[in-house]
Nucleic acid binder design. Structure first.
Lengths: 187, 187
DNA sequence: CATCCTAAAGCCAAGCATTTGCGTCTACGG
DNA sequence: CCGTAGACGCAAATGCTTGGCTTTAGGATG
């Protein structure tokens, strides 16, 4: 799990917020690769040892920030039927994740993550969004595959190619994956 | 691409070999997390600045070593038909990659890989092995899906779950993925 | 409301890792 | 066999990381 299970108010919370903010600001000012713990600490108005103690190292801190930025801020749009919903969602997912900055976030999230909690969180975000789409479809009376199937057939191929083969990805690929799962059956 | 496109003989090659060997030895002696550049350099009989200049940092070096160890050393076994071949291959793949050390290698390969060349190499290894299985099946007269389909439907889900949801993976999951792709059609 | 208790932050210094400039050497090409 | 460019060793300077100890802020208790 993220280390951020601290007391929800008070100084700890302020420190965390200011450190996270410092990371985001500096990342856009000097570039992600130029970040260092002392640099972030200075901007956040905190001593480096505070960061080392709470996060362990720069990678774990970046991982936490990345997960935060990968959290969907809004429920997926409703397009009236499952095929359109899923296609639109997959295209947007690909769009966000395949961009250089998106890939950097995904990599950061995976990277500084000894116990796998942050990566699991990312996966849970996607599963949650898909769950919403499927629930909507069920309410409409459409027959739907289950979440795990959509993860295997849509999310996993997208993420695999984003991570391992960043070339030659476009929106039509996302569309084909969705068509493949809805075309014949739900399996 | 890997930085190892150096002059194929002579001192450069010797340095690379001895550094790679030092990483492997030390990783098994003191553990992967205890590796540092100076430590590796001493064991390799090289100065740290040589490693920094050639590889940039520890992560890129580990990435190179990881890719090397992820290269399949042998063609997949022949079980007589495509279903058995693919199932056996997928189970072995899962077994190797889902182990703690396998996951560490995959993560290292992805991690210290600015240009994506090393990750692409890993993916190419898997595709190559699958290509062999499919070519065999075609020779036997079986009808086969194409490599990209197998990557999407078998490799990607396995890798996605290894990276993002390390829990609850077992050999039967690999089997189900293969069954899903061969069951009805090749799509 | 005053007081205590504890987790978290600050501070400082020692220990390493990383970077960099410069001189030297070794492999490859003529 | 010689010239040259790339790669390595060396060492100094810089900056990151860690551990011990002290201080502070927040929550809990009476």
């Amino acid at each position: 799990m993220s280390r951020q299970m601290v007391r929800p108010g008070g100084r700890s919370a302020r420190v965390q917020a200011s450190v996270h903010a410092a990371v985001r600001e500096l990342a856009s000012e000097v570039g992600r690769d130029a970040l260092t713990v002392p640099l972030v600490a200075r901007r956040a108005g905190v001593t480096p040892s505070t960061i080392y103690r709470r996060w362990g190292d720069l990678q774990e801190l970046l991982s936490d920030v990345a997960v935060e930025r990968l959290r969907p801020d809004t429920a997926p749009e409703d397009h009236g039927d499952l095929a359109s919903d899923l296609t639109a969602w997959a295209e947007q997912f690909l769009d966000e994740m395949a961009s250089p900055t998106g890939r950097a976030y995904v990599r950061d999230a995976l990277l500084g993550d000894p116990d796998g909690g942050n990566a699991g969180q990312c996966s849970a975000y996607a599963a949650e969004q898909i769950g919403i789409l499927l629930a909507r479809a069920t309410e409409r009376g459409e027959s739907t595959p289950d979440v795990e199937t959509v993860v295997d057939r849509v999310v996993a191929p997208l993420m695999y190619r984003i991570l391992f083969r960043p070339d030659g990805l476009d929106a039509s690929y996302a569309g084909r994956l969705v068509a493949g799962i809805l075309g014949r059956d739900g399996r």
